[in-house]
Design a protein around this nucleic acid. Sequence first.
DNA 1: CCCCAGTCCTGCGGGC
DNA 2: TGCCCGCAGGACTGGG
Length: 285
Amino acid sequence: MPELPEVETMRRGILPALGSRIVDIQKPRCRVKPIEVTPPPAEFRRRAKGQSICAIQRVGKRVVLRLDSDDTIVFEPRMTGLVLVADPPTLAHLRFRLDLEGGPISQILFWDRRGLGNVRLLSPRQFDQQLGPDKLGPDPLEIDADELRDRFKTSRREVKTALLDQRAIAGIGNLYASEILHRAGIHPQKHCNRLNVEAWNRIHAATLEVLNEAIRYEGSTLSDGTYRNAQNDPGGYQHHHRVYARAGQLCSTCHDQTIVRIVQSQRSTFYCPACQPKRRRARLT
DNA sequence: CCCCAGTCCTGCGGGC
DNA sequence: TGCCCGCAGGACTGGG
């Protein structure tokens, strides 16, 4: 499930396409239901053809290609989407192709097993409407602890659920929310408005540590094997998860308690009851 | 503002 | 061996 580290890895994998020119786009027919591509291929092709890629960015969990025309091409992988320069895992789920010339990469592919993702070509105005600050919060790697706290401190929501709100901050998903709170030593069911400055400082530091470490390992490829980098190679951060999908296993940090799985907002949360106590531990002596 | 349930979609694994 | 069902959780929507 691509979150910030996986999408950032995809972005880095297609950086060699910077400066290349788009010569064509294709929406291959495949046996599964087609994904959303907007606008339809004819208009998409007309507006993209001949354009050079002048920037390759990430906005939350999306990869964004900026074109000379000021239009953008946005890849949104959602659950199972991949942005590839190598051969895709299966041909049946290849959803979109950009043909390039003038650089080392001849094509960028969008592959998506479940097909919940999408590819869009957006005008500057559409970009602001769909990916602007009204829709997406800042990047968690770009803000300081004070801004992080300001964005959540009055919320009565449980902190793990709140971290998934892309309007508050954009890029954290279900996996990294659990990992971040474990690293910060914060119980996932604590309410945001009950956390003090020191707690937010710890969440901020843990966010930087976990996300940057995950980027260094090129993201997490879970047991279903779906996530791949642009070269179709798996990531390595799954070997460093401390809580995610480890229910029943001994906590690798405290070696005292086993990891617990609970459900919040219909999503799995994993935490360690010893490292992430619900109440502040009573002062001893 | 907040929260929940339902929706999209496919492949996989458990149970019978 | 085959079939059904639940599950995974990104983003979005409608209703309370």
